[in-house]
Design a protein around this nucleic acid. Structure first.
Lengths: 219, 219
DNA sequence: CAATTTTGTTAGAAGATTCTAACAAATTAC
DNA sequence: GTAATTTGTTAGAATCTTCTAACAAAATTG
């Protein structure tokens, strides 16, 4: 069984993997906020446990067992976030830190019960998919609001970033998942967008913000 | 801030303390399932942190800070147990293992929210008092059923032991906290008692069981 | 009270996770 | 295509929590 530390490395590896499934030591060190020698030694440990493939001076790759292990930790994290919001009344900007700790609890029935109480949710409060009990992650194809054209109407479905500051910014503008957004105009100079949505007939969003909003076509 | 390991030692020390507040190294070693040298070194660490008083070859004593720290961990444990039973539908025999892990979560608002959702409960599912936010424990004066005389009518208020096996035994006899018990007779040979309660006009309980049931006079 | 048993201590080591310093390989930039 | 930079590795050490072996103090027992 993975230690808490190992679980955290697996989670980061899962999230950092590129299309080829590769992660560089330096990226992982930055993500985990530890030195490269620390990552080097942990990578050797994870390899011994069969969770990744490592060759000197090459990027590392999770094995299928490693991916599953990681996805199951992410499942616990996202179920917890959803539980905190839906059943305990927390705001979506408050739940990450708590879930970061609860994801390491070893108790299948605890997470089973959360899942049941919520009716088996498929996404967390930030729109990220919740892996299933087998560690399979459902692929979703959203695009960023910044890719939209003037006049388009879309649904806000998820976020590419869930930092507290960004979530608080969204709160301040009443931007919640599920709302319908219409692109009124796009400023050619800085790519900022004027959008309209429920209760907000005209709101300007910077390119930085539009890049972080994942949407899908209405319908 | 106490590590998880330190929190576990503090909890054990709190629970093992005799009237004088003293705990022997060997008791603590047994309770924690570690060797005496391990306890010896941890005790020195806890002393450095100001949580206990230690003198060579003497039993140890928690300081008031140590007692408070311990009581706050116990508060988190008991609030969690109550939450699992009242809000998540677990049985009282299932919650200890889970609470044993969740008690180490660092998030005042998480436990605050549990407390609020339950309307500030004062006891856990096994009748043990929940320390308040300042770490103060409300003293309660129950006595064991085995001290009762024939004919007495009492309320089942708490347990002196909450092992899964004992809780499952109580489940099998429909013995729940709050029920009213009348002592019908006491067998002089082995101190077993015949009692009557809601739906059970005549149930025989061994001395071992009666010693583990804490009751108070009806009224 | 002397002998035995129990309890507690020290010393030394091991595994997990982390670090810094020094070096080596790979990549990028003229 | 060298030189400089970035990336990755090794070696050696520190901290935390644990252990066993050996010894010392305290308590118990005849």
């Amino acid at each position: 069984m993975a230690s808490q530390t190992e679980e955290n490395y697996l989670k980061s590896l899962f999230n950092l993997a590129n299309e080829a499934g590769e992660v560089n030591i330096s990226e992982l060190a930055q993500q985990m906020q530890v030195s490269m020698p620390t990552v080097n030694s942990m990578v050797k440990t994870l390899q011994k446990n069969g969770w990744l493939i490592y060759e000197k001076y090459k990027p590392v790759t999770l094995t299928s067992e490693g991916k599953k292990e990681a996805a199951l930790v992410i499942r616990k994290h996202r179920l917890t976030e959803m539980f905190l919001v839906k059943k305990m009344g927390f705001g979506w900007e408050e739940v990450h830190e708590i879930a970061e700790q609860i994801e390491h609890i070893h108790s299948p029935k605890f997470f089973e019960r959360m899942d049941e109480m919520m009716g088996h949710p498929t996404v967390d409060p930030h729109g990220s998919p919740i892996p299933d009990k087998m560690g399979r992650v459902q692929e979703v194809s959203y695009f960023t609001l910044s890719k939209c054209k003037t006049g388009q109407i879309v649904n806000l479905a998820a976020l590419t970033n869930s930092s507290t500051e960004f979530l608080e910014f969204l709160n301040s503008r009443d931007l919640r998942l599920g709302i319908e957004l219409q692109v009124i105009s796009i400023e050619p100079y800085d790519q900022s967008m004027v959008v309209s949505f429920e209760g907000h007939p005209s709101e300007t969003l910077s390119e930085k913000v539009c890049d972080r909003l994942l949407v899908r076509l209405v319908g």
